Amino acid sequence: MYYLTKLIVTCALVVAISEVARRHSLVAAVLASLPLVSVLAIVWLYLDTRDVEKVAGLARSIFWLVLPSLLLFVSLPILLRSGVNFVVSLSVSIGVTVAGYFLMMLVLHKLGVHL
Rank of each mutant, 00 (worst) to 15 (best):
V39G: 12
C11N: 14
V84Y: 11
E53V: 14
V74W: 04
M104A: 12
S91T: 14
A29V: 02
L72C: 13
S18L: 07
A21P: 15
L72Q: 01
L34A: 08
R23I: 13
V9E: 08
V37Q: 09
L90A: 10
F73D: 00
A59Y: 03
L58D: 00
V98H: 00
L47I: 06
A32E: 13
S93H: 05
A29Y: 03
A32K: 12
G83R: 07
V27W: 05
L65K: 01
W44M: 01
V84C: 06
I78Q: 05
L31S: 01
K110V: 02
W44H: 01
V27M: 05
I17V: 15
V27R: 00
A29L: 07
L58H: 00
W44R: 00
K54W: 02
G112K: 02
L36I: 15
T5Y: 11
L80S: 04
L80E: 11
I17F: 10
L47E: 12
H109N: 12
L31D: 02
A29F: 07
I42C: 15
E19W: 06
L4R: 08
R23Y: 12
K6F: 13
D51V: 03
K110A: 06
L79S: 07
S69T: 12
F86Y: 11
L111G: 01
L115H: 14
L58P: 00
V88C: 06
A29T: 11
V66R: 02
H109K: 12
M104C: 11
G112F: 03
L115T: 15
S91P: 09
M104H: 06
I78M: 11
M104Y: 03
S82W: 12
L79F: 11
R22I: 04
M1Y: 07
